[in-house]
């Protein structure tokens, strides 16, 4: 599903140049649930953003579901994001003037689906995350956990091949974090490929594979026995 080879990325700030990713080799098969870990500043978000075509690598190759991602113009990039990828952010990134339902329906709008069908699909995903009763609430009328569930519903609504989540539980307490992880495990159980950036070992333990970054390189990559959330609570 995902295949990257010798990926490099550096940021220029003023005169100095910061080499963040120093040759990442990494591949993910369909249906995997991967936790990307590492200390702050190790380049986790940078890697995830490149995987999400939100940012571009300086060198190296990236193949997503057999499609080489290289020198895309913005129009094509946005199409790929829409078709292949779903995003979940630490800060939720919901559009604050849109209701939960409209937020979830937004990626479908960009797929050209008509509003009636769009709302039906969006509603079914809200149901899946247990928020059908909150469909007409605005983001600021929702709790952090509810917002993240809406964001997950939105990421799922466009049927992406890969779900990318950058610290999805970073702004949530333990209990809510586990609820979100339960949801993610459920989605993964249905066969979706998911990559999660996290700091928390207990969250990483709920994934099937742990990748550890340090100084722009993968220093550890191991498959683990998944801890089910239901067993924990």
């Amino acid at each position: 599903m995902i295949e990257i080879k010798d990926l490099h990325k550096s940021y220029k700030t003023g005169k100095s140049e910061l080499h963040v990713l120093k040759g990442i080799n990494f591949s993910v098969k369909e249906g995997e649930l991967v936790a990307i870990m590492g200390s702050s500043g190790s380049g986790k978000s940078t890697l995830l953003n490149i995987l999400g075509i939100l940012d571009e690598a300086d060198s190296g190759t990236y193949v997503l579901d057999g499609v080489p991602i290289k020198n895309l113009n913005e129009t094509l990039a946005s199409q790929y994001r829409n078709k292949f990828l779903g995003f979940v952010f630490q800060s939720f990134n919901l559009i604050n003037y849109k209701s939960a339902l409209d937020n979830v329906a937004l990626p479908l709008y960009y797929q050209g689906i008509k509003s009636k069908e769009r709302n039906e699909i969006a509603m079914s995903y809200l149901k899946k995350v247990g928020l059908e009763t909150h469909s007409h609430h605005l983001p600021n009328e929702l709790s952090g956990g509810q917002k993240q569930r809406v964001a997950i519903a939105r990421a799922m609504a466009s049927h992406p091949k890969v779900l990318l989540a950058d610290e999805p539980t970073g702004a949530l307490d333990t209990k809510t974090s586990y609820e979100v992880m339960e949801l993610i495990q459920g989605i993964n159980d249905e066969g979706k490929t998911i990559l999660i950036v996290t700091h928390e070992p207990d969250i990483a333990a709920m994934c099937k594979r742990n990748v550890i970054l340090r100084d722009g390189l993968i220093v550890e990559d191991k498959y683990i026995t998944q801890q089910r959330v239901t067993a924990n609570v």
Binding site: G52, L54, E74, T75, S78, Q79, R81, N82, K83, F87, N93, L94, I95, L106, P107, Y110, Q111, R154, S158
Partner: peptide
């Protein structure tokens, strides 16, 4: 956000 969700320029 819109672009991340697939909005073209």
């Amino acid at each position: 956000i819109r672009k991340a969700l697939g909005a073209s320029p």
